[in-house]
């Protein structure tokens, strides 16, 4: 997958997201410290690192779910340009989070309404932004289920009856239905077996390039980063120790920790 980085889009315009010196402390402990980066439209950024290195904390700060102790997260709003998301009203931030953003949880049950049907899960965002036409919601839902390779005849089944991989795809469809520009993914493939992982990654990669999605993918699996991401941040103890183009970082790691991480990947 050495071609991934060559397809990285170059945008001269303002970035979609600008993370500036974000620090999140939990009392004495550090969640993440002094993280800065820009993310452009259509760009996929992976955040890798060991367990407890602050990946998810950082993701939550960026996704508006946890206010950083210091630093700013600016998002390029459609009509206003870069704005600090934590200065938006709560109503606007939540609207942003369910229209222009998506969030894919590691455990699909965290991101799905497990007691309503698959169709309602996908249609929820449409209804939340005011779509009141059942037939149209239904058509859109079927379309999205088809696009994430789910059997549309299972539209009225509860997600609890779906396999893990299907649940994860359903969660992705549910997020994409409002055509977000930015997706946050927290270990999207970690709970899946290897064959399913590969298919899901394939799907994600296809959707991201097709829809021009920007994404921030948290993963501890460097293969996921290699396959999906244009750029890669390596985190350790809450700090970014190395960043750059994915292939560059993985093929020529500079920081001792990155070298350790790369060398410890099992070669099948």
């Amino acid at each position: 997958m050495a071609t991934a980085s060559t397809s990285a889009p170059e945008f001269a315009s303002a970035p979609l997201l600008r993370v500036n010196a974000v620090t999140r402390l939990y009392g004495e402990r550090t969640g993440c410290r002094d993280v800065s980066f820009d993310l452009h439209q259509g760009e996929v950024l992976a955040i890798a690192g060991e367990s407890g290195s602050g990946k998810t904390t950082l993701l939550n700060c960026i996704a508006g779910r946890s206010r950083p102790t210091a630093g700013t997260v600016e998002y390029n709003l459609r009509h206003e340009g870069l704005r600090d998301i934590y200065r938006l009203s709560e109503a606007r931030l939540r609207l942003l989070a369910r229209t222009d953003w998506g969030f894919v949880h590691q455990n699909p049950r965290d991101g799905l309404r497990i007691d309503v049907s698959a169709g309602a899960n996908v249609g929820e965002r449409l209804m939340a932004i005011g779509d009141r036409h059942y037939g149209r919601i239904r058509d859109t839902t079927e379309d999205w289920m088809h696009r994430v390779e789910l059997d549309t005849s299972r539209i009225d089944d509860a997600p609890a009856t779906f396999s893990g991989g299907m649940q994860q795809r359903l969660q992705i469809a549910r997020n994409l239905v409002t055509h977000p520009r930015l997706m946050f993914m927290d270990e999207p493939t970690a709970s899946l077996d290897v064959s399913v992982q590969a298919r899901l990654l394939d799907l994600l990669r296809g959707l991201a390039s097709e829809l021009g999605l920007a994404a921030i993918v948290v993963t501890h699996d460097l293969a996921v980063a290699r396959l999906l991401a244009h750029r890669l941040l390596i985190m350790k103890s809450g700090q970014v120790v190395e960043s750059g183009l994915t292939d560059q970082v993985l093929d020529d790691p500079q920081h001792p920790y990155t070298q350790l991480l790369v060398s410890s990947v099992l070669q099948a």
């Binding site: 939540r94 309503v116 929820e124 939340a128 059942y134 009225d156």
Partner: peptide, 18 residues
């Protein structure tokens, strides 16, 4: 407070679907 009432329609959607 934020007038987020889409969820109620999810219930009605479920009724129609089933």
């Amino acid at each position: 407070a934020l007038e987020e009432y889409g969820l109620m329609h999810v219930k009605l959607y479920e009724d129609i679907a089933h």
